[in-house]
Structure formats: structure tokens, C-alpha cells
């Protein structure tokens, strides 16, 4: 797909802001909360357009989630947004007790997920957020692959009642999709058909997976490439049928492999149709300062790492 093509890069934050502006003009129930990061995340554009429906609570994430719960209880659809190091980092309790337990219509959009955050270092990177959010009942967990996917999945979250955790990345990322991909919460997107193995990825790792698919094809390995943007509820039916068809899976994610996408895939495959699963992801370690691409390379999060895992998996059969 990428081959010699020039890859379009774009920002998930821009896509978030555009989606919120569009939904905000359609739906007066939509409100947005920020915690002193709204300029960075660009929800300040919503604040400029709809000042009566934007609330900046300052650097107080727990309070922000509690207020969002109250707004939802009074009929609003709050989107709360800050960096993923702090939401969920500083407010697991509020997400659990005030949002997920009563199953409220609160949409948590956390930007700057994973290690791709870059030079800010480990304190501002997240490897654990996905596992924590996935383990909370009622909560849907979504990680879009690029800006167009972000736009569509934010709209999907607005259409779908109940709480969401949507994780975005800081850097501009390669566009996997054209303008408006047809994505549905809870349904994977098959990006390339294959027979020898399946590569199931989420977030920025989807573009790496596609690149890996190209390389593998040159070596006569046919990889099915799947964007599993919804980690919960996982599209178990499709994933099990892909396991049946290909006989082996590589997962690719930009977070700790403990409790992430690989774990989610293993949870469904192991009981229905066990096949070998190789997990590409952060191997239970914190990140560090560095540039986006340098960090992805150092922590084993590139197409090369996926190719290596895929070849090993195929060779072992």
C-alpha cells in the first residue's frame, strides 16, 4: 500500500477537533471538558465556537471526570479530553465509580497515548492505560489508526450510548484510510486479505502492519492485515474466523503487551480456536525521551518488528 507512494501524514487532534465542531453544531447535548490542555489537544476550537458548552476545570482530572458524570446524569453527552498519562492516570476511581458503573454517556478521549508522545519522556507516556480501561466493565475501548479513523470513530462514539475510552496519539501519523472510512465500533476492518497468517493491529501500529504486509508479500508470505480499532467489545467472531483461516496471528500495539490487544485476541482465540499468537508491543517497560520514530524503533514497534515476528511464526509451523 505504501510502496513508493507518498504517504499523507495528518493529526488525530485536528480530526478530534473537527469531529467535535461538527457534532457540536448538530447536537446541543454535546459538551466538552478540558483540563488545561485544551489548546494542545485543540478542543479549544470547540470552546471558541461553543463557549457555553465548554468547561475548563484546570489541572484537576478527577474533578473533570466527576463533573462529566453529573452532566451525563442531567442529559448531556460530555467529551472529556486531556493527555492519557492523566486520564486515566489520575482518575481511575472516578472513571470506574462515577462513569462506568452507572454506565453513563461520558466519552473519554485521551490524547498522547503510548510512547510515540516522544521527548516528554516516560512520565507523559502511557503503556498501562489500555489494560486498565479494558478491565473496567461497561467501558468500550477504541484506538483509531489515523486521523480519518479518529473522525469517524468519534462520530460513532456519539451515536453509541454509554461510556468510551478513545485513545489518540500525539504525532502526525500516516493516513491508512481515505477521507471517510466505513468503521463501526466493535467491528474490525480487514485491510488486506491473506492466508498464511493474520496481523491484527490498532492505533499507529496499523500503518506499520500494512508496511509489514508489503514486505512479507515480497517474500511470498501472505498476511491478512486487520485494524482492530475496537479493543472492547472485541470483534471475537471475525478474529476467531481469521484464526481458523490463517492458523497464526501476530498482534501489534503501542502499549504494554500485558492486558492490551494481544491479550484481548488471546482471550477469545484460546478458547474457540487456539493458534500461535506472537505479540508485538511494549514489553513491560517504561518509555523514555526521544523522537517518535527513534522510540518506536527502540521499543520494538516498527514494521520490521512485525515482519520478524511474522516470519518466526510462519517458520515454526
Amino acid at each position: 500500500m505504501f510502496g513508493l507512494m507518498l504517504v499523507q501524514m495528518s493529526s488525530m487532534r485536528d480530526a478530534l477537533a473537527e469531529a467535535l465542531l461538527e457534532l457540536g453544531s448538530k447536537d446541543p447535548k454535546l459538551v466538552v471538558l478540558g483540563a488545561d490542555t485544551s489548546v494542545s489537544i485543540k478542543t479549544s476550537l470547540f470552546a471558541d465556537r461553543f463557549p457555553d458548552r465548554f468547561f475548563n476545570v484546570g489541572i484537576a482530572e478527577a474533578n473533570m471526570i466527576g463533573i462529566a458524570a453529573g452532566l451525563a446524569l442531567a442529559g448531556k453527552i460530555p467529551y472529556v479530553s486531556t493527555y492519557s498519562a492523566f486520564v486515566p492516570g489520575k482518575c481511575l476511581d472516578q472513571i470506574r465509580n462515577a462513569v462506568a458503573y452507572p454506565n453513563l454517556d461520558v466519552k473519554i478521549v485521551s490524547s498522547h497515548g503510548g510512547v510515540s508522545v516522544g521527548p516528554d519522556g516516560a512520565s507523559h507516556q502511557t503503556v498501562e492505560d489500555v489494560a486498565a480501561m479494558r478491565a473496567i466493565p461497561h467501558l468500550r475501548v477504541v484506538i483509531p489508526a489515523d486521523a480519518p479513523a479518529t473522525r469517524v470513530l468519534i462520530e460513532e462514539s456519539w451515536k453509541t450510548p454509554g461510556p468510551f475510552y478513545i485513545r489518540l496519539s500525539r504525532p502526525s501519523v500516516p493516513e491508512v484510510y481515505s477521507s471517510r472510512p466505513d468503521l463501526k465500533v466493535g467491528q474490525v476492518k480487514v485491510l488486506r486479505e491473506g492466508t498464511d497468517l493474520a496481523i491484527i493491529a490498532c492505533g499507529v501500529m496499523v500503518s506499520e502492519a500494512l508496511e509489514a504486509g508489503e514486505s512479507l508479500a515480497k517474500e511470498k508470505i501472505s498476511a491478512e492485515i486487520i485494524d482492530s480499532h475496537t479493543l472492547k467489545p472485541l470483534d471475537a467472531d471475525t478474529i476467531v474466523s481469521v484464526a481458523r483461516k490463517t492458523g497464526g496471528i501476530v498482534t501489534a500495539e503501542e502499549q504494554n503487551i500485558i492486558g492490551g490487544l494481544g491479550s484481548a485476541v488471546a482471550e477469545v482465540v484460546s478458547s474457540s480456536y487456539p493458534v500461535p499468537i506472537s505479540m508485538v508491543g511494549v514489553r513491560d517497560t517504561f518509555g523514555e525521551s526521544g523522537e517518535y520514530k527513534e522510540l518506536m524503533a527502540k521499543y520494538g514497534l516498527t514494521s520490521k518488528d512485525i515482519v520478524r515476528a511474522a516470519k518466526k511464526l510462519v517458520a515454526s509451523r
Binding site: 478527577a62 466527576g66 463533573i67 462529566a68 452532566l71 465509580n97
Partner: peptide, 19 residues
């Protein structure tokens, strides 16, 4: 509101009042 884990209720009440 499902109070119990302490400290959250006033925040939730603020949300209701804002709405």
C-alpha cells in the same frame, strides 16, 4: 448518583448544576 468512593459527589453535583 452512586456515591461510595468518597470525594466524587460534589464534582458530580457541579455537573448537574452546570447542565
Amino acid at each position: 448518583f452512586p456515591g461510595g468512593s468518597l470525594g466524587i459527589g460534589l464534582s458530580a453535583a457541579i455537573g448537574m448544576a452546570l447542565a
